[in-house]
Design a protein around this nucleic acid. Structure first.
Lengths: 205, 205
DNA sequence: CGCTATAGACCGACCGGTCGGTTTTCTGAC
DNA sequence: GTCAGAAAACCGACCGGTCGGTCTATAGCG
């Protein structure tokens, strides 16, 4: 990487890191640009060199969170040393651990920002929908594998089930944020892995 | 009711109606007081006679939505002419119809506002938790009845299941707001009533 | 009349964004 | 390698507008 690219990414990245943390905590409209800039240590003129508006910045924060989450999910869901069900469990346990450590992860941040800014722009809308589609597709693939191996109950259509799992996770994430503890995520894990996905006759190991 | 009380409630109620609609659409921080006042046709001095701050107003909006939702749920979940499962189905179908008609209902509005204002005050927090506890208790009671009648699968603990249903509904509500259609709520219905709650051997009618 | 409720001008703070100036980096000519 | 000019990136004072809240005056009511 050339020096100017390093400089460019450094400032921009610092902004995105600060935006991710502050928008996650205070919301998009609840946190002014000034605060983001202070935390990132970037003056206003620099900000507008990189992003044409706060809204474009918000889209970039969402896209970054999405891509990071996908990068995290991919190796976990693709780990062929484990069975499909184990891969799913590992992935959700990692997500739970992320939430326990920092209070939120991309799957919590993105819908939160989307709800708040949903009436603003098509860019936000498109970025969020893209995230959901990718998450859903990845989950559905692993679910299908598990069903084919008789490890996961075939009662539910895999695509439908993937959507349901994401919705349930989002609901649990809301409760976590409201309750300020991760009990809801534990409920999610228990429900999904101990009963919902359980194949009649499969071992729980 | 005395005339001044009518007068008092009229202005206050107009504010709460406007707040419910605008906060639901634009969020708490995304919608300024001026806009609420314009829609309600209430001058600023009057607003501050009834509410000491925007935050207190937000809490009142949440509490009103919660109580209205409970008032709506109660007769549906308590209708003994129907079986427990049918009562649940009717209630969620009514909620779905509310969302289809107006874009949201209390169960969508409350977590949305809670996420946005969660770092603000204990009052919001307390009001939201109270809502969840009441919804959950009501659902759990009906689920338990259905399980006792072998109408609803006993695989899941009723209290746990009530929490899961609420989380799943919240997740579906988020998707609805993001996708701008109610397909996610239909997925919720299909999943919950056609598979999840179905008692092995029970008729679907 | 006294109290409640309304009315709206006003306040300082904060908002997102603008814009002229400065510094740093890059590029091509010599 | 040096240098001059251009481009990229940084810098922060400034802007008009909006924000939530204050406060004095007035209207309405019993």
């Amino acid at each position: 990487m050339s020096p100017e690219a390093t400089r460019d990414l450094d400032t921009r990245e610092r902004l995105l890191v600060a935006g991710t943390e502050l928008f996650g905590r205070k919301g998009f409209n609840g946190c002014g640009l000034t605060e983001v800039l202070q935390q990132a240590g970037v003056p206003k003129g620099s900000f507008y060199h990189h992003f044409s508006s706060k809204e474009e910045f918000g889209v970039a924060v969402i896209e970054r969170a999405r891509d990071q989450h996908l990068d995290e999910m991919r190796p976990l869901l693709g780990d062929r040393r484990l069975s499909p069900l184990q891969r799913l469990r590992t992935m959700f346990e990692q997500a739970r651990a992320d939430c326990a450590a920092s209070g939120a992860n991309a799957e919590c941040l993105i819908p939160k920002l989307a709800l708040e800014t949903g009436s603003l722009s098509e860019s936000v809308h498109a970025a969020v929908k893209c995230a959901y589609q990718q998450w859903s597709a990845m989950l559905a693939q692993v679910l299908r594998e598990g069903q084919n191996l008789h490890e996961i109950d075939r009662k539910h259509d895999a695509d439908h089930l993937a959507n349901v799992l994401i919705m349930l996770w989002e609901g649990a994430a809301i409760r976590m944020q409201i309750d300020r503890n991760i009990a809801a995520l534990d409920d999610f894990q228990t429900f999904v892995f101990d009963t919902l996905l359980r194949h009649p006759g499969a071992q729980s190991s």
